[in-house]
Amino acid sequence: MKKVLISGNEAIAEGAIQAGCTFYAGYPITPQNELIAYMSSHLQDKGGVFIQAESEIAAINMVYGASAAGVRAMTSSSSPGISLKQEGISYIAGAELPAVIVNIMRAGPGLGNIWPAQSDYFQATRGGGNGDYHCIVLAPASVQESFDFMRVAFDLADKYRNPAMILGDGMLGQMMEPVKISNTRNKISKIKKSWALTGCKGRKPNIIKSFYMREGDLERFNLTLQKKYNQIQEKEQRFEGLFLDDAEVILVAYGSMARIAKSAVKFLRSKGKKSGLIRPITLWPFPKDIFKRLAISHKPLAFLVIEMSYGQMVEDVRLVLEGKARVEFLGRSGGGIPTEDEIIKKVMRL
């Protein structure tokens, strides 16, 4: 298969098209502009619908509509824009619609700046909008994964009728790497969407909604959502592990940050330091099981969580370990990225 050199943003867009996405709505914001530009030409060329919306809010609500009409739909933005989309994401979760949302994170709070960051982890994994809900969150760490995970995201979204989020960052979106582009549009999993709005010919009318006023209805609906979330937590945890068998220090990092952590682990190993890496691929569901297994099977000296934030995923690591292992943290944000040297120094001091 031929490789092409493309950016993470372009890989996400092409990955979505190859995954059968036929509807995109978005609003420009750096550092994800290459994605919307790619969609504007390539999606339309392939017969899909592209809309440059009047706002992030309109864009996510268009995705709600397209998904309600039964097609694979997505939007993309960067941190401040994703904040605006939270209304729509909550409605999508509440109406149990499949949709894919891409967040190419930049540093905050507020307008912040345009440099890469991972400070939207809480927003992505806790829900972000109102109500008890979760998005399935996937964190690619390379341009290849940016392409590949779009298929995974659309499949999971359809399977569970749930929003799925791709959580990347400005570095991943902007960088170019060789990517194997597999032409798989003919192999798209066809999940029958009998709930979709198509006109009520030959069936009873379908209703897409998240409003439950009759006493007890909303509680019952929430319980079915919770059952679904439990099922996702059981079945969909994904991570990459490196040198976990004998590691005394286990680094934990996702996305771009995991690449740098991986380099540090390899260097530390070359110096005889028994280190390892857990790279969560699904941030929600958080890959709890591997942490639990490690905490029981061999007690590593410490977990070192590294983030381009001031400590968000580290809370999940602490929660899952329940005090059974030492958890340290290294983080920078606002444009700064923890360097390989900083990681190595921190590990040597543990």
Partner: peptide, 20 residues
């Protein structure tokens, strides 16, 4: 340069300065 490196089967990344 990055394209040529890719053709030679090497690992390669290209990162631009972006934005304003």
């Amino acid at each position: 340069l990055a394209q040529a490196a890719m053709i030679e089967g090497k690992f390669v990344t290209w990162l631009p300065a972006y934005g304003a």
